[in-house]
């Protein structure tokens, strides 16, 4: 269980994290979602006692991280796959961490086996692919067999196999009753992994909802193209349809399913050229939520303007 209470972090004049309050429960994968620069990593660092909050606090099992008697046995974290000296071996890195827990080479080999690096322990981390380094980071997070697992952008830069591995892995951890908090800026990724979503934008919490609810957020719309759109509308309107948009022969209908539209059109012998259900994607739900809180937005391309005047996108 992670409890974040009115957590705020200010760097100079910018508010990186603005009064965040949420709880991450055990047994679920909780997605921490937001655009780049929304304050996800800063929040995670504060949960882990690495950064000092300007105000507010973060508790793990009821205690601030720094007061945990054996932090690695309570919390395992993967912050950034690069955080190992490239000239150390995987084994060497893990053994130095295991030593702080009073654990030895056996525990190290066991976590290396768990993440599928059993044979790569003696290799230098600098020779690892990004995917292998992510696995090593996960191995480090698992050393203390922790109740809480925190992963910052774990799928970044992974190949499809690695993505599926991490996804399955997180689900398995949650199924064992652990608390899993995973950050991402990719909505589609979170839709497939997380049961619950915390959406942040510009350091503020914009949504704290089950993933299903966010997905179900809006009724599906049905796009109908017909050579006789007016006749089609005359048939659909009494059945309870509402017209969301109209563009020439194309109607965007809400309130009726595609099956009902098809049946009505057939009954009235109306010709249809297209009948498509538009389910609101998680992507668009996410964009709506964070629209006002994106720091760096791409401008519509304008060839006449000076290219150097475009706002710089940062990560």
């Amino acid at each position: 269980m992670i409890e974040v209470q009115q957590l705020t972090k200010r760097y100079g004049t910018t508010l990186a994290v603005d009064d965040l309050t949420f709880t991450v429960r055990p047994g679920h994968v909780t997605g921490f979602l937001g655009p780049n620069g929304a304050g996800k990593s800063t929040t995670m660092r504060m949960i882990l006692g690495l950064d000092h909050p300007t105000s507010g606090r973060a508790l793990i099992a009821g205690r601030p991280y720094r007061d945990l008697p054996a932090p690695l046995r309570s919390v395992g974290a993967l912050l950034d796959a690069g955080q190992v000296h490239p000239r150390r071996t995987a084994q060497g890195h893990l053994r130095s961490l295991a030593a702080t827990l009073g654990e030895g080479p056996r525990r190290v080999q066991s976590v290396l086996d768990t993440v599928g690096l059993g044979d790569a322990g003696r290799r230098r981390v600098g020779t690892f692919s990004l995917g292998m380094r992510q696995r090593l980071g996960v191995a480090a997070a698992l050393l203390g067999d922790p109740e809480v697992v925190i992963l910052d952008e774990p799928v970044n830069g992974l190949d499809p196999e690695g993505v599926i591995w991490i996804r399955t892995f997180m689900r398995a951890l949650a199924a064992e009753g652990r608390t899993v908090l995973v950050s991402s800026h990719l909505m589609s990724e979170m839709a497939q992994t997380a049961d619950h979503l915390l959406v942040v934008g510009r350091g503020r919490l914009v949504a704290d909802v089950p993933t299903d609810t966010l997905l179900r957020g809006a009724e599906p719309a049905v796009r109908v193209v017909s050579p006789r759109p007016d006749d089609v509308w005359r048939v659909l309107e009494p059945a309870g349809a509402s017209l969301a948009a109209r563009n020439g022969n194309e109607l965007l209908i809400e309130g009726l399913g595609a099956d009902v539209v098809a049946r009505l059109a057939l009954a009235h012998r109306l010709e249809l050229h297209e009948l498509v259900t538009h389910r609101r994607s998680l992507e668009s739900a996410y964009l709506e939520l964070t629209q006002d809180s994106v720091d760096y937005r791409s401008q519509p391309f304008d060839a006449s303007s000076d290219p150097t005047s475009h706002p710089k996108a940062t990560t």
């Binding site: 008697p69 000239r87 890195h93 053994r95 030593a99 702080t100």
Partner: peptide, 27 residues
């Protein structure tokens, strides 16, 4: 004492960890 009972980092364990780190680099 609390840390040792909980299997956490004591100064002695940190020393062991740092010795491993020191020896682990060829430089």
């Amino acid at each position: 004492t609390v840390a040792r009972r909980a299997g956490g980092p004591t100064l002695r364990r940190v020393l062991a960890s740092e010795l491993l780190k020191l020896r682990g680099l060829r430089s």
